[in-house]
Amino acid sequence: MATKKEEKRFEKEMKAAKKAKMKAMKAAGITLNITPEQRRYNRRKAFVSSVWPIFRFFILLGLCFIILYPLIFMFSTAFRPNEQMNDPSIVWIPKSLTLQNIQQTWDVMKYGATVLNTIKLNLVASILQVITCAITGYGFARFNFKGKGLLFVIVVLMIIVPPQITTIPLYMQYSYFNPLGLVKLFTGDTISLINNGLTMYLPALFANGLRSGLFILIFRQFFRGLPKELEDAAYLDGCGPLKTFIVVMVPNALSSFLTVFLFSVVWYWNDYYVSSSFFNQNDTVALMLKNLTATLQAELFNNQTVGPRQMIVWLESGCILAITPILVMYIFLQKYFTEGIERSGLVG
C-alpha cells in the first residue's frame, strides 16, 4: 500500500511523463490519430473538469452557510452582553464579549450535575442497547425458525410506529410496575419507576430502547453480509452458536458496533419526548434546555415576566452548553459517523 503522499507523487510523475511524451510527439511531427468525435469528447471533458470545481465550490459554500447559519447565530449571541441585543448597530459581531451569560446559565441549569446524570443515563442505555440489538440482529440474520417473518414485521413496526402512541400505556405500566405480578409477590405492592433511570435502562436491556428497531435492522443487514464460512469454520472447531457469535462475529462487527453506539448516544442525548414523559424533574440536558425559559424566569428574573427577546442571550448560552459535549464528540469521531454507516452494511 502506497501512502497518500506517495500516491500524490506518482500522479504528479505520471502527468509529467505524459506531458513530456506529448511534447516529444509534437516535436517529431506525429499527430495523434483521433477522430473529430473523440476530440470533441476530450475537449468537452476538459472544459467541464475546469469549470465544474468553481461551481461546486459555490454550491457547497452556499449550502454550508445555510447549515451553519443557526450555529453562527448561536455563537454570535451567546457571548454578547444582554444590552447589546437591542443595539441596532450590531448584527453579527458584538462590540464586547462576555462569559457572564454562560456562567449564569450554567448555574441555572445546574450544568455539572445535569451533564453527569445525562452521561450516565446515556452511556448505560446505549451500551445495553447496542449489545442486545446486536444479539437480536444476529438471531434474525442467521437462524431459521418458525414465525421469523412475522417477528420481523414487528421489528419494522417498531421503526414506523411513533412513540407517542405507546407512551401513555407505558406510563401506566411504569408507574405501577408489576410485570407478571412478580413485583407484587415480593414487595407486596407495585413500585413506581417514574423518575427512575430504569425507565431508560429496562427497555434498552430488552432491545426496546430508542429507535432500537432501526439498530436491529442495521445489525441484521450487517451480519447477513458476512460470509457464512466464518461460522462454519467455528462450528467445525467445536464452538457453540453463542461462542461463535462472541469469538468470531463480534470482532468482525466492531465498526458496526461503534456506529450504532454513536448514533444511540446522539439520539439518547437529544431525546426529550420520551424522557419528559417519564421524568418529572429536568434531569437531562435536553429536558433542561426544553424548559429553560421557565427555569430562567424563576431563578434569574425572580418570577418577573420577561419578554422572549430579553432572554435570547441566556437561551443561546443554554444551547451552547447543551450541544458542546455532543459536538466535541462529533468532531473527534466524525470519521466513524460517516464511514461507519458505509461499512455497516446498511447498503445492499
Partner: peptide
C-alpha cells in the same frame, strides 16, 4: 435462533 431473539421478544411484548 429463538434463544438469540428471546431477550428482544420478551421486551417487545412488554414494552411495545
Amino acid at each position: 435462533g429463538y434463544a438469540f431473539i428471546a431477550l428482544w421478544l420478551i421486551g417487545t411484548i412488554y414494552f411495545f
